[in-house]
Amino acid sequence: MIEAHFSLVDHHGKSVSEQDFRGSWMLVYFGFTHCKVVCPRSLAKLSSALDALGPGIDRIAPLYITVDPARDTPSVMKDWLEENFPRFTGLTGTEDQIEDAKKAFRVFAQRKADEEDADGYVVPHTAIAYLIDPTGEYRAHFLDSVDGETIAARISDIISREENISNA
């Protein structure tokens, strides 16, 4: 149901697709850097979950895909993520590329006017983190309501089981 395909640009300016992450697990979250509440809360939680994984984190690529490509250029994403959530690599692209990525992950995001935002809009979005395995298959997703400890335990469990099967 989830087909983890994308063709985007990372926050270093390099073109990337899901193929570049084959061999690694991906933890993918969609959001936008102007997000005031949901993204900072979720990225902080996911970062602490990743910290809790210890050495296992080396096998995971945490990715943050913007739903606001008009404002989230590679450099904007780089500055924001490196300052606040350095574990994550930001991905952006053209409107069409982002639409394709949203469709592949079945993400909802819709621009909405907001007087409190400096540019006059926000982009409410699905707050789900997706775990994709090293072959590119969807393995699990975590809702915003799930705490970091539980996420860490589930990721660890899924990866361990996968490795046990591979080593058997």
């Binding site: 079945r106 909802f108 789900i128």
Partner: peptide, 13 residues
């Protein structure tokens, strides 16, 4: 069920 669930997610519920 999965088909319907992901459509529901995609539509922002």
């Amino acid at each position: 069920n999965q088909r319907l669930y992901w459509q529901m997610v995609e539509k922002g519920y």
